[in-house]
Design a protein around this nucleic acid. Structure first.
Length: 279
DNA sequence: TCCTATGTTGTATG
DNA sequence: ACATACAACATAGG
């Protein structure tokens, strides 16, 4: 489920375990989420290590652990569609979807990664330097590198791609997922099926600004929340109206449209976002 | 039973 | 080589 701000929210679920020692690791190595991961090393190295810090970028999370011998260990987690992190008392019942459990026995706490659909991914590496996949991540949308020109150039190279599909590409819009893409386009007044190459320079500027705004506000509202579940954005966001047929545009009151664009269910306001009908 | 789902990737085609 | 489209992955819930 999670996009940018929800990933940040989820990352913080493990904060109670920061600075504390992992005394046991339970790893369901047969689960698809560990494809390409050295599960044996994970089981062996994590025990005795301390959870030192964590970071989120786009939809990715990176946890840094310090082994007893001083080595640095890196745990990468992508939540896929249904992944999540939680903290539970040691000894709490283990569910089918609980693929990774770090017990911090000295604190009576267990750090759990669960993922029912298993579209998520776990990586584990050892060494002083950040893993390459993390070091090479795309520039964040709130960074200077995410410029109007960078977006314009990206759109030029994908002139025939529907702008909705382009917004989902993590190499340029890290953290943007299905609902954020719809939110950005709704605010920018751009029909999701418009081709990237046909957008006017002013529309690209508007889309860039709204991408920044949606990310910033979502991080403030969701990413920083201190609640058990992440909060929803306010009712004047498209977010609150986009999930089922019959929703109305919070700005114009018109009936929202919901169709597949770029292979994903997409919601837009025909009054705010004029364009060709989608078949 | 059928349809949907806040994601990515491999493969086929242009 | 690059861009584009879409099936496939695996499970739960309406």
């Amino acid at each position: 489920m999670p996009e940018l701000a929800e990933v940040e929210f989820v990352r913080r679920r493990w904060n109670p375990g920061l600075g504390r020692r992992i005394t046991a690791a339970r790893v369901n190595g047969r689960a698809r989420v560990f494809a390409g991961c050295d599960v044996e090393m994970l089981r062996r190295q994590a025990v005795g290590a301390r959870l030192e810090s964590s970071e989120a970028a786009g939809k990715q999370m990176l946890f840094r652990l310090r082994a007893e011998n001083g080595e640095v260990l890196w745990l990468g987690i992508h939540l896929g569609m249904t992944g999540g992190l939680s903290v539970r008392p040691v000894g709490a019942p283990v569910a089918k979807a609980d693929h990774l459990v770090f017990e911090q026995g000295e604190d009576g706490r267990a750090l759990v990664f669960a993922d029912a659909r298993m579209f998520g991914r776990v990586r584990f590496e050892r060494g002083p330097a950040e893993p390459a996949w993390w070091a090479q991540r795309a520039p964040a949308i709130d960074s200077a590198e995410f410029s109007v020109e960078a977006v314009a150039e990206f759109f030029r190279r994908r002139a025939r791609t529907p702008v909705k599909a382009a917004l989902l590409m993590q190499e340029r819009f890290p953290g943007v997922g299905n609902w954020m893409a719809d939110e950005i386009l709704w605010r920018a007044g751009i029909h999701p099926a418009r081709r990237c190459g046909e957008l006017a320079a002013e529309e690209v500027r508007g889309l860039h600004a709204e991408a920044r705004w949606v990310c910033e506000q979502a991080m403030r509202i969701i990413g920083c929340a201190d609640t058990d579940e992440w909060p929803d954005p306010p009712a004047d966001w498209l977010f609150r109206h986009r999930w089922a047929d019959g929703g109305r545009c919070p700005r114009t009151g018109c009936l929202l449209r919901r169709e597949s664009v770029g292979g994903r269910t997409t919601c837009w306001s025909p009054l705010r976002q004029p364009g060709e009908d989608v078949s």
